[in-house]
Design a protein around this nucleic acid. Structure first.
Lengths: 139, 139
DNA sequence: TTATTAGAGACAACAAGAATCTTTAATATC
DNA sequence: GATATTAAAGATTCTTGTTGTCTCTAATAA
């Protein structure tokens, strides 16, 4: 069991977009270069983020991507669900077993993890990164 | 991201083995039938559980499988790791990025989930199942 | 010694993920 | 309105991991 690479790229991309000066849009080219990815591949990931309502896209010249809502409303969980979907990590393997107690425990642990990830905001990462950067510069 | 079917089967098998009268061994045949699985396939899963030290196997006539330690020491996490391995769910995608803050958050949420699953014992499931059974019978 | 049982290995089928390429649709700018 | 630019959609390939089967070997109780 592993998160897909796409989730990984999506999280890094979102942090980058949040870190960017507000209202500026970036094209796939730049985003891809920043992560050493092929633009066409990253583009698929960005489309998912767009459909999930996390970013906005405008085609055409001077187009690109930008955050679509306040960074304070974007959690880790939002990004993860945008990429991975929201199906459960565990489903009882025994046919016709409503209320399986094993499934119940597994589901609870999953819910707790999601709860935690929904409380972690990407903006906090950006702020910490800037603090680290400042600390480095003052050396 | 999903748990493998094997983990699912392994959990159900372990609960079954714990539920069994102590010290009695069961062959793959019975265990497979109970879950409607092919014996050869389930056998692979059982071998993993054996190597993880969760169950004991004795080959030969009247052989089979049984729990290898006290049920009070067998957690959900033990079974999950026996099947899925213990690699992390998330690894930063950016090369040479020690101390990635995104990875840190993801790792923390994973650790918390594992912590919770290590505190959930399979024996508790068995006990609840027996209570449910008794409740049904007294109707 | 024999029947029975687990273990190991090779192998095939399938599904999902990762990634590329090509074509289409939308849009700002001239 | 024409053109350059950019996102979106679709088809396709490649790889990887899971799922599952089959066969052969090793161990053991009777």
């Amino acid at each position: 069991m592993k998160y897909s690479n796409a989730t990984n790229y999506a999280l890094h991309t979102m942090v980058y977009l949040i870190w960017l000066p507000k209202a500026s849009t970036v094209g796939v080219q730049d985003l891809a270069e920043f992560q050493k990815l092929s633009p066409t591949y990253l583009s698929k990931i960005l489309t998912k983020l767009t459909k999930a309502g996390l970013i906005e896209s405008t085609p055409g010249a001077k187009g690109g991507y930008k955050i679509s809502k306040s960074p304070k409303e974007i959690s880790f969980l939002d990004v993860i669900i945008a990429i991975e979907g929201e199906s459960n990590l565990f489903n009882c393997s025994i046919h016709h077993n409503e209320g399986c107690l094993i499934e119940k425990v597994m589901r609870e642990s999953e819910d707790n993890m999601k709860e935690e990830l929904s409380n972690r905001l990407l903006i906090d990462i950006v702020e910490k990164m800037e603090l680290q950067k400042q600390a480095k510069e003052s050396n």
